[in-house]
Amino acid sequence: MNQKITVGIADMQIGKGNDVLITYALGSCIGLCFHDPVLKLGALLHIMLPLNMEPGRKNPLKYADSGIRETLRQLEMKGAQRSRITVKIAGGAKMFEVNGGSLGNIGQRNIESVHTILRRENVRLLGEQVGGSVARTLLFDVDSGQSCVRSFGKQDIVF
């Protein structure tokens, strides 16, 4: 029996073996599936903003930079190796097209920030379903390392 583990906003969960990790309705937020295929260990992280500039750093999982580092730290504590870890990402959409406002750039900024930080941390990005204007629910099967994106009015995309 595989277990479905729900990941909230600004949240991260680690799964093993047959676990399926799921995070719902990614808009401008980004979901990242971390996978170590040898240990069959995975983590799903749901970040909301590109960079942690908050004094006090109360919630590291809210931001791409501190969230990715925290997830890697926890995975490595469980024996995962940086050279084996791969990542797939989904999200970074623009939900509303507002004229003459900075609103809506957050998705794009999130994507760019995630790319930069993954490169800096030497983690391979295997696949992505990002941008556009659709909300995505992201499922991550830890055993196979396969990710699946579910959207309203569209076919599921496995990547």
Binding site: I9, Y24, A25, L26, G27, S28, C29, M48, A93, M95, V134, A135, R136, T137, F152
Partner: peptide, 8 residues
């Protein structure tokens, strides 16, 4: 779209 994404 999904209301979760709209609310975020």
């Amino acid at each position: 779209d999904m209301q979760g994404a709209i609310l975020t």
